[in-house]
Design a protein around this nucleic acid. Structure first.
Length: 628
DNA sequence: TTAGGGTTAG
């Protein structure tokens, strides 16, 4: 009796309680605690059940495992695992799947794999859980391998499996095969599968396929719309992305953070500042969303409105990550505000996140832009030591630009040959830009030939090369270049400039007279040129190394697309409004001079974004420092 | 019990 009493004293209170209840009420108590999400009591009850060789039903355990995931930890999860396999109890596949999912959610792939290997019967859920786990861990080859093994075992994939595995495709062929096989079993109408298909086709740059999948949709949801809008925006088809955004709204869907991020990206690509500002109003609903705010910040930077970007960065954004800082630093540098970019980088080092690969690119770009050769070299040579980042091809590109800008062309070539990475077309184009500024024809020919070896479709480089040969009267070489262009089907892209006026985008294309006010614009250009000539403007017809990408000598200099757009801006926008233009080709020397003088004479601010650089013209100077 | 969409450079 004394012994029994002492045992009771030693035993924890819950054991005393359960020792007095029947087996079925023990399980009932456990079930109750599981559904009440009372994890500590459920765990104690489970221990008592184990002592008494009692088990509950699989759904109750699955509730307990959910509770471990939300409120507990892996230790409790492992105890559940141990219990459901104890004393010869054989858990159903459903329950093992739940445990499998638990290990995956805790990030314990090895343990999940071990359990999966030991499973007597694996069903589609078991396989899909593993496929999804590998897919989320970026082990795409494993996910695909599992799909093959699953098919070999005769387990048929369902919509869950396909929507997981689609993003693991290692090639377009693979994607088309999966697309065909899911169509055979009629799974293409599932919204998850459809959005995964759209997303994956977009990632491979197959926009038409993505659009086909989208257009076959009868009923879809917001994510499907977001997939197609996002895919188009990421593949530089901003116009189509914005068109579908309007359709989405007409179809009755309200934009969420993901939609607005993609819409902002489309505005960024098209330099549509006014539309971007309208989108900003909707962004205010999601003011804590970091990704969306970063996209907003980038939109203002790339649309050339650094005032707005600064306001977003300093006032709106409570949380900032390395992307926010990098965006702002690169934005300042690209728009010609190098000193501000470097100051911001200093404050990032003091109170911001750790800089990454892209942050350093922005910093080097700022140094190059401001001609800070020593600072650029310092950051380049110490980036590994200071920030733990190995210089990549792009960092070398900035330094080649830095040397080129400073006129150190020989050193730039030496660096290209010394760098660890194989130079690509971009590397050689940077050198070519320096040759243009410093009028080094021989080196320009060398760089142009290197570009064409790597990118035989680059129309601008063919034309540049042909112009150089024409200028030095090497007619056979001119003919050879033209032959190569024809043979490869390379065509000169006409110069095009876009300007946003009263919520409408006006496009001006060289040689195209379809704009309703084209005659007025041409008359106004003549008047403006007359005024400019009176203050000393002489049209610059030296195109040989001026015009990199194509608005040609034989075309009328006077009607280059950016001149049409600038003058249309003067005619249509109030005096205090900045004239903002986006171009598809690099700005030519004459248009650059024209813009500087117009800005001065008409007391206007003009911002032109070409494919590579930004030009802020104000009071007769350009933020690019005449280097582009 | 298993699934899909958004941000910095080039």
């Amino acid at each position: 009796m004394r012994r029994a009493t002492s045992m009771l004293k030693l035993a924890p209170p819950w054991l005393v309680r359960f020792s007095s209840v029947s087996a079925s009420s023990l399980v009932d108590e456990f079930t109750k605690f599981c559904y009440q999400r009372d994890l500590p009591r459920a765990m104690k009850a489970m221990e008592a059940m184990q002592r008494n060789r009692l088990w509950a039903d699989a759904i109750t355990y699955s509730e307990l495992i959910k509770c471990c995931l939300v409120r507990g930890g892996i230790e409790q999860g492992r105890l559940v695992h141990e219990h459901v396999f104890s004393n010869g109890y054989e858990p159903k596949t459903f329950l093992i799947n739940t445990l499998l999912n638990m290990y995956v959610k805790f990030g314990l792939l090895d343990e999940a794999q071990k359990l999966f290997d030991e499973m007597p019967d694996r069903n589609v859920v078991s396989w899909t859980t593993m496929i999804s786990a590998y897919s989320n861990s970026s082990l795409n080859h494993m996910a695909l391998e599992f799909l093959i093994l699953m098919l070999r075992e005769g387990v048929r994939p369902n919509m869950f499996t396909y929507s997981s595995v689609l993003r693991d495709c290692n090639g377009l062929l693979n994607l088309r095969q999966l697309h065909a096989s899911l169509m055979k079993v009629g799974l293409e109408s599932d919204v998850f599968v459809r959005s995964a298909l759209i997303d994956t086709y977009s990632k491979f740059g197959e926009q038409q396929d993505a659009l086909n999948v989208f257009n076959e949709m009868v009923t879809g949801d917001l994510v499907v719309w977001n997939s197609i809008i996002g895919g188009l925006a990421q593949n530089s088809d901003g116009d189509e992305a914005l068109h579908l955004y309007k359709r989405m709204k007409r179809a009755g869907f309200a934009a969420d953070q993901s939609t607005l991020t993609s819409v902002l990206r489309a505005c960024t690509g098209l330099a549509l500042l006014e539309l971007g500002r309208q989108v900003h109003v909707h962004v205010l609903k999601f003011d804590q969303d970091l990704i969306l705010n970063n996209a907003l910040l980038d939109m203002y930077c790339k649309c050339g409105s650094l005032e707005d970007a600064n306001l977003v960065f300093t006032r709106t954004m409570a949380d900032k990550d390395v992307i926010s800082w990098s965006t702002m630093i690169a934005g300042l540098a690209q728009n010609g505000f190098s000193t501000d970019a470097l100051k911001l980088f200093e404050s990032m080092k003091l109170r911001g996140p750790k800089p990454n690969y892209i942050t350093v690119l922005g910093v080097l770009f700022a140094c190059s832009h401001a001609g800070l050769v020593n600072d650029g070299w310092y950051y380049f040579q110490s980036m590994k030591e200071l920030f733990g980042i190995d210089p990549g091809r792009e960092h070398y590109g900035c330094i080649i630009d830095l040397l080129g800008r400073a006129g150190k062309l020989d050193e730039a070539v030496k660096l290209i040959h010394e760098m660890k990475h194989e130079p690509d077309a971009v590397t050689w184009r940077i050198l070519l830009g320096a040759c243009r500024v410093h009028k080094n024809v021989d080196l320009a020919i060398y760089a142009a030939k290197e570009i064409l070896k790597l990118d035989p479709t680059d129309a601008g480089t063919y034309i540049l090369l042909s112009n150089i040969y024409a200028n030095t009267q090497k007619w056979e070489d001119v003919a050879e270049v033209r032959r190569s262009m024809r043979a490869r089907g390379v065509k000169k892209e006409p110069g095009c400039s876009w300007i946003e006026v009263s919520k409408q985008v006006h496009a001006f294309i060289l040689g195209d007279n379809s704009h309703p006010r084209i005659e007025d614009i041409k008359r106004e250009i003549s008047r403006v040129i007359q005024r400019l000539v009176s203050v000393g403007y002489v049209p610059d017809t030296n195109f040989v190394l001026q015009d990199l990408e194509g608005e040609q000598m034989e075309d009328s200099l006077q009607y280059h697309s950016e001149k049409l757009a600038i003058v249309f801006g003067l005619m249509s926008l109030p005096k205090e409004k900045t004239i903002r233009i986006r171009k598809n080709l690099r700005i030519c020397g004459d248009c650059h001079l024209f813009a500087k003088l117009v800005a001065q004479l008409e007391n206007r601010v003009i911002v032109i974004r070409d494919p590579i650089r930004y030009h802020h013209f104000q009071e007769g100077v350009c933020s690019c420092g005449d280097y582009w």
